[in-house]
Design a protein around this nucleic acid. Structure first.
Lengths: 253, 253
DNA sequence: AAAGTTTCGTTAGAAGGTATCACGAAAGCG
DNA sequence: CGCTTTCGTGATACCTTCTAACGAAACTTT
């Protein structure tokens, strides 16, 4: 029953092993070792990417034997899942901290870019090539909903007739408002992801555009696809942001 | 000297091993085996992703021993590089074929999406998480420039004052034309990637926006980030396309 | 056609990875 | 102090990439 205990213990301790100040000394030690493993894992990922992550190498670096780590993580997959969770939480915290100081969408975008540039591998862990069989646990989707909620709130703060193409108000004729109206009609009926927020469809569409457009520039930049092209990705990012926000420069941004 | 011969042979044959109808029977056989290996590799990638690609498994499927494949590929990296090259070529061919029939940007965008959905793993092989130490060979960057040239031509066909936010003409005031003008000034000085094409900065900017925005939607969709959100990614893709093109619907699109 | 050379595919093996098992030692708990 | 749980270890099985050496097959040349 040693193996089932180790498994059950790992799962049971997963709740309180996250906080360092647990009740029992056992759990506290567990949490510390788990944290140390993840620390080495992040270092290894930053150096050679997530695909090169090796439990064996981490164990060697920590001065213990390979199988020792299996007392703390069920396997490589569980460790990676944990790292993905930490990455999501890190991004959510960064976004929330900015939003708490009243940051607008523009500032949020800069927070996102700064967070991504600080550790590209961490960004790709979330938004990069998905692992074939992997399905994110419940709590991770919850964290991503936190991020979306903050983004949605920032977009709602812009007002329903905010500038930008297709948003409705600022355009000359109805010729431009039409295409987004078609999507607005669709998104109005599929707003489960917006939580309880009673935002108009234009706001939902704006939040989606923010996400996809910034990710588009950011991921191509981080992957090096702009490498030989000469221009500054930061300026392209800013240009997309301008197109999204309009030039008047939101006060909180 | 067998090993240096095998290496040199592989490199020398790499040129004519690509076309199936080579001069010598040796080269023809080589080309056939290499093609068969890649075929199995694609199947394996489609099933479990590029990270799960195993030379050993391919050899087993082909009924030969593991090391036999090292006569045809220097290693796993060379095989993957070859697959990336094929993926780029496949995309470039698809784009060029569409462009040859006079397809506009809208149709090009649909070709891109169709190509990506046909094999998501192939898309991620190009635009997904980059492998840490990998640098694309010269000819691969050449193929990507082909794609960019076609996109650029299609964008130029739209005319310099085409619709879309920040392009200049269709907007009500100068307040919206300003932000993109800032980027236009920058991109005007860094247009090495545009080849010899004498396109105005607005066209370059438009092509860049096409690439980044469509990739933004597409990559998030393929990675499953829209999974639990309920809306139809195809409609979001279309909405972004509309925002890029304007609603009047290009004739060739 | 025979001889020579190149290439091919094999087995063997090194080095490294994940993951399991069984055992002894350490540490917490009653 | 003793019982119980947990921890770390070495051994082991099986996977991977990749190199080396050898025999056989095939192409080339004489």
């Amino acid at each position: 029953m040693a193996e089932s205990d180790a498994k059950g213990g790992a799962e049971a301790a997963a709740k309180d092993a996250t906080d360092a100040s647990a009740a029992t000394p056992r759990a506290r030690y567990r949490a510390q070792v788990r944290a140390e493993v993840k620390e080495h894992a992040w270092k290894q990922i930053a150096e050679a990417g997530a695909s090169a992550l090796s439990l064996n190498a981490i164990a060697k670096q920590m001065g213990v034997s390979g199988p020792a780590l299996y007392r703390y993580f069920a396997g490589r997959d569980e460790l990676i899942t944990e790292l993905i969770r930490d990455a999501y939480r890190s991004l959510a915290d960064a976004v929330r901290a900015a939003a708490a100081t009243g940051a607008g969408v523009r500032r949020l975008a800069h927070v996102l870019r700064g967070w991504a540039l600080a550790d590209p591998h961490r960004y790709f862990l979330i938004f990069g090539t998905p692992v074939p069989g992997y399905h994110a646990p419940e709590d991770i989707t919850g964290i991503s909903q936190e991020i979306m909620a903050d983004l949605l709130a920032a977009c709602a703060a812009l007002g329903p007739d905010a500038p930008g193409e297709g948003a409705g108000g600022a355009r000359a004729g109805a010729s431009v408002a039409e295409p987004s109206a078609a999507f607005d009609a669709h998104i109005a009926g599929h707003r489960d992801w917006a939580g309880g927020l009673a935002a108009p469809p234009a706001v939902l569409r704006r939040a989606l555009a923010f996400w996809t457009r910034l990710h588009g520039v950011l991921s191509l930049e981080l992957a090096g696809h702009f490498a030989g092209m000469g221009f500054d990705p930061a300026l392209l990012y800013e240009a997309e942001l301008d197109g999204l926000l309009g030039p008047e420069g939101m006060p909180g941004g």
